[in-house]
Each structure stands twice: as C-alpha cells, then as structure tokens.
Simulated assay, not measured.
Amino acid sequence: MSSAKNSLTGLILEYDSGLVPPPYSHVFRLALDWKKGNLEVQLDLHYTEREELSEEEILDEGFTVNDDYRYQGPLDQVWINPIQELFSSSKWTSKDIEDGGISLTPQGHGKEEGVKIPSNQEEWQLMAQDLIQAIYETVKKEAPLQIHFRKVDSERAWDCSLTVHFSHRQVVFDQEGKTRNLNWEYAIQLMKLIFTPDYHYELSKEAPGNKRGMYIDCGDGYWHELGKGVVNIDPSFDAVGKIKSRLDELIES
C-alpha cells in the first residue's frame, strides 16, 4: 500500500460538463470523508443554463423541471478501497479543464491539499457517476439496474438476469432462480458492451422471443433480438458478437 493511499482520508471531486448544451449541462461537487473508517458523502448537483429552454424542451429530453440534487449522509464503505486504488494509480496534469472535466482535492489527516487534475479523466468521471448512482440507490431515488436476457436454441430456453447494485458495489447473476455474485469490474465491462450497440426500438417487443436466438431487455421492459433489433454501430467492433459470447459464458459457467 503506498504512502499516498495510507495518508488519504478524504477526497473532493468537482466536475463541470463544459461545452455540453442544456438541459444536459451540469456541475457537481462530491465530498468524500472516510477518516473515521466509515464513508460519509456530501453531493451538490446542479444543472446549468436551463433558463434559456422552455419546460417542454426540458421534458422532451427526459428530464424534469428540477433535477438538481443534494445529499449528505453515509455510503457503503465498500467504495473506500476502489477510490484509494484509483487515486494511488492516477497520473496528474497541468492541463486546463475550462472546457469541462473533473478536478480532485485530496484530504489527509484533517487538512486539505492542493487541487489536482487527473490525466485519466474518463476513469474519474466514471467513478463519480458510479458514486452518484450509489447515492441514488441508497436513498431509494432509483432502483438497481436490472438487465434480463433469454437464450433459445433447438433444445430449450434459458432465462437470466443481471442486477447491478451500485449502493454496495455488487452484481448478482440470476439463472432461473440460482444466483451468484460476479466480479464487479468484469460486470461493469459487460454493461459497457451491452450499451454499445444501436437498439432499434421499432423492432422491439414487450415479451422475449421463443425462436432460436438471444434476446435482451435493458431494464425498460422492451425486448430486443441481438443481431436483428440490436446492431453494431462501428463495423470494426463486433459488440453484438461479444455480448453473445459473454452471455454464453455466464450461462455455461
């Protein structure tokens, strides 16, 4: 364990979406404190520049008229080690983030240090998103993400699901009533794969198919057939084929 990881007892993450237009543009401040062993968090999330949009324009994009959110309270301490590990492995840059990005203020032994700009911006933004999702689940603002899928071949059908619990950093795979926990990083990579292709909702159905194939419901109640209603966006990257392969591995393991 590095000395930096040893001395780190808290972290403040500040994010600005930069050039992203409203109603998506937002800023947040996420303060994390684990100096007493448990994890205490404070989130202040604010959507910006919405005054130039009508209420209808905001609603049409899937938002509400007030999506700002504040929270102060505990979060499962299972998140402490991943935060420390990411901080310990991060590189820092002097690059300006005026056009959007995340900055960190590490805290150790009760005092704040200087602001740091991580060069691995995407990793920290994903970490922040995961932590915010964990907060939403903890306070029951949102339910855990659940993805259902069915595989049909000439002999039978398999019905399975993946439930991602950000609140306690756990992924549960359910295969016809038998459950097991999956490695978090493996499952998150699978989630990224699942949301990579293009989903054609005009071809979706409200129930899974019974003909040979693989079907998926990404949590919204609509079933898509992989390879027909779900197609690759980038011809050089076979996301659909990789999803099929990963799901086959889960069913057979």
Rank of each mutant, 00 (worst) to 15 (best):
G101F: 05
I80Y: 08
N38L: 08
G100T: 02
E52K: 05
Q170V: 14
W34C: 05
W223C: 08
P106Y: 00
H109R: 14
M127I: 09
L126P: 04
D159S: 06
V115K: 13
S161D: 13
I80M: 02
S89N: 12
R246S: 15
I216W: 00
L39M: 08
L131A: 06
V152P: 07
Q107L: 12
S236P: 02
K211S: 14
N181M: 08
M127D: 10
V41A: 15
V27S: 14
T105Y: 11
G37M: 01
V231M: 03
H200P: 05
Y24E: 14
T64C: 03
Q42H: 15
S7F: 03
L19I: 14
S25Q: 05
V139F: 03
L53S: 07
L30R: 01
K192V: 09
D220G: 02
T105Q: 15
T93C: 04
K211Y: 03
K35I: 06
F63I: 09
S204E: 00
E40S: 11
K192E: 11
D76T: 07
N120R: 13
R29K: 02
E185P: 00
S3D: 08
Y24L: 13
L75Q: 11
N81C: 08
D33H: 01
H46R: 09
D130L: 12
S245K: 12
A157K: 01
V230N: 12
L32F: 07
G229W: 08
E98Q: 12
